[in-house]
Every structure is written in structure tokens, then in C-alpha cells.
């Protein structure tokens, strides 16, 4: 029972960070219908940013989110304005390759700057834990990052639901043409969406830095995970991505124990295919016909 509880709990906490990565991707996909293969690399940029702030300016990784978020927003907006906006109407595989190319440029630039060494960010609390009871413990930094994730997600909901800009982004995601007819500046919304998506990925990078490690190719695995989460939740659905992230966290954690840790990613991909086949609109998405 303790094993189950431990796995379940750490699955939820890890899932929170996954959710943040997934929300970023789903926003980008929702607004632009582009699958961003460079999403993990954007996360990597966020991680290095956190690393630099921590080692040079001694800013705590959790505090540095306040800096990482706006910087990554600008970075994402720049990527969108200079590169992605040019292929909005191009065929899908060109969009994919463009984001792959941008990802390669990002990861290899990081390699030139930081070398390909693994960077470890050691904070005073990196290895500290909280006793929950019943022999179950949680990692303190993981708990903090989960709390920040929840706060960021809540703020994002508020922004999307309550502000005019947020509503315009949602309208664009729902129907690009209609939004354009309604006088919404779709290109601007795309820049905003990519900026926000990148900021969220960067934030996720900052949040996992204290419990993970950093190297130039760290992004690849997260990109695939983000795809799965996004589809699971329904492409474009923020609520779906939140739930999807946590669901994937739990699935991974439990299947590592009850199936085998080597097969846990297979379980995730099979789940992904099943959802694609039987509920292509995702768990929370509205069906698009």
C-alpha cells in the first residue's frame, strides 16, 4: 500500500510539471495548428536561463520564474514573428521541419555556449523531503514546483477566460477564419500564443531544474511527452492538458511499479494511440468534424 501511495503521489507531483509543458504546447497548437517539435528545446533554454541566473546572480530557481517567464515570452514571440509566422499557411511537414530545425539550432547553440556537460543545480533544499505519514514521503522542491504550477495555471485560466486578449486568443483557437472576420488580429494572437507557450515551457524548465539536471539535448524527451499530453487532453484544450499531464505522471509512475520501468513509456504511447483512435478529440476536447 505504501508503494502504491508513494507512486501515486509522486506521479501527481511530476504530472504537474508535465501539465505545464503540455499547456504551452496545446496553446500553440490551438491557435496555429502547428505541432511545435522545438517545444522541448524551448524548455531547455528556460533551464539554462535558470542555471545562469542561479550560478551567476544567485537567484533561487523558484524565484527566477519571475524573470524566466517574461524573457521566455519575448523569446517565443520573437521565434513566432521571425520564423513561424512565415509558414502558417505552408504544408504541415514544412512546419514540422522548421520547428525541428529551430530546435537543432537552439540545442547546438546551447552546446557551444555551455559545452555538452551535465549541469546540476544544487539548492539547499534539493534533497529535502516531507513525511506524509504511512512511510510515504514527498520531495520538498517537487511540492513547491507543483504549487507554483498550480498558481501559474490558475492565472492562465483567469487570463484566458476573463481578459479581452485571452478571449481573443481562445476565439482564434476555436476558429481562425471567424476570429479574423470578427476583427481579431490573428497574427498578433499567434505571437501572443507562441510567447505564452514558450513562457510556460520555460517556467516548467525552471521548476524542474532543482530536481533534475541540464544538458543541451534534454528537450527531446519532453517534446514527445508534451505531444502525448496535448493529444490526450484534446489539442487546444488547456483544461485537458492540465488533466493530461497529471494523468501521464500517474500512469508512468504506476506502470513503472506494476508493469516495469522499461515498458512504462510504451504504456504511455499505447494509451496515446488508444485515445487517438477512440476519442480523437481527446478527453476534454470538443469533437471537430
Amino acid at each position: 500500500m505504501a508503494v502504491f501511495m508513494q507512486s501515486f503521489l509522486s506521479g501527481i507531483l511530476i504530472g504537474g510539471v508535465y501539465a505545464l509543458i503540455g499547456i504551452g504546447l496545446t496553446l500553440i497548437f490551438g491557435v496555429m495548428r502547428i505541432i511545435n517539435f522545438g517545444h522541448g528545446d524551448i524548455l531547455m533554454v528556460g533551464m539554462y536561463l535558470t542555471y545562469v541566473l542561479f550560478t551567476w546572480l544567485h537567484i533561487d530557481p523558484f524565484v527566477s520564474v519571475l524573470i524566466t517567464f517574461p524573457l521566455m515570452f519575448l523569446f517565443g514571440g520573437f521565434l513566432q514573428k521571425v520564423f513561424i509566422n512565415r509558414v502558417l499557411h505552408a504544408v504541415a511537414q514544412n512546419q514540422i521541419l522548421l520547428t525541428i530545425g529551430l530546435g537543432l539550432v537552439m540545442s547546438n547553440t546551447a552546446m557551444l555556449i555551455f559545452t555538452s556537460d551535465y549541469k546540476i543545480l544544487t539548492t539547499s533544499y534539493s534533497s529535502s523531503t516531507l513525511q506524509v505519514g504511512g512511510g510515504v514521503t514527498v520531495s520538498t522542491p517537487l511540492l513547491i514546483s507543483f504549487a507554483i504550477t498550480a498558481a501559474v495555471t490558475a492565472a492562465l485560466y483567469w487570463f484566458l477566460l476573463k481578459t479581452d486578449t485571452g478571449q481573443a486568443i481562445r476565439a482564434t483557437a476555436q476558429d481562425r477564419e471567424a476570429a479574423q472576420l470578427m476583427g481579431i488580429n490573428v497574427k498578433r494572437m499567434s505571437i501572443l500564443a507562441f510567447g505564452l507557450g514558450s513562457a510556460l515551457a520555460g517556467t516548467a524548465g525552471a521548476l524542474i531544474s532543482p530536481t533534475y539536471y541540464i544538458f543541451p539535448q534534454v528537450g527531446g524527451g519532453f517534446t514527445l511527452k508534451a505531444f502525448v499530453i496535448t493529444v490526450l487532453g484534446g489539442m487546444g484544450s488547456v483544461v485537458g492538458a492540465t488533466l493530461g499531464g497529471i494523468l501521464i505522471g500517474i500512469t508512468e509512475s504506476l506502470s513503472a511499479v506494476y508493469i516495469s520501468s522499461g515498458w512504462k513509456d510504451v504504456v504511455v504511447f499505447v494509451l496515446f494511440l488508444l485515445v487517438l483512435l477512440f476519442r480523437p478529440s481527446g478527453l476534454m476536447g470538443k469533437s471537430r468534424t
Partner: peptide
């Protein structure tokens, strides 16, 4: 930097020779 150059090349081709 060869993978970096490779990435730059991919980006340029997609943008200018779709």
C-alpha cells in the same frame, strides 16, 4: 558546430525554398 549549421540550413530551406 556542424549540427548547428545543419539546423540553420534546414530553417533557411524551409523559409526560402518551401
Amino acid at each position: 558546430a556542424h549540427v548547428l549549421l545543419y539546423g540553420v540550413l534546414v530553417v533557411l530551406v524551409i523559409l526560402f525554398m518551401p
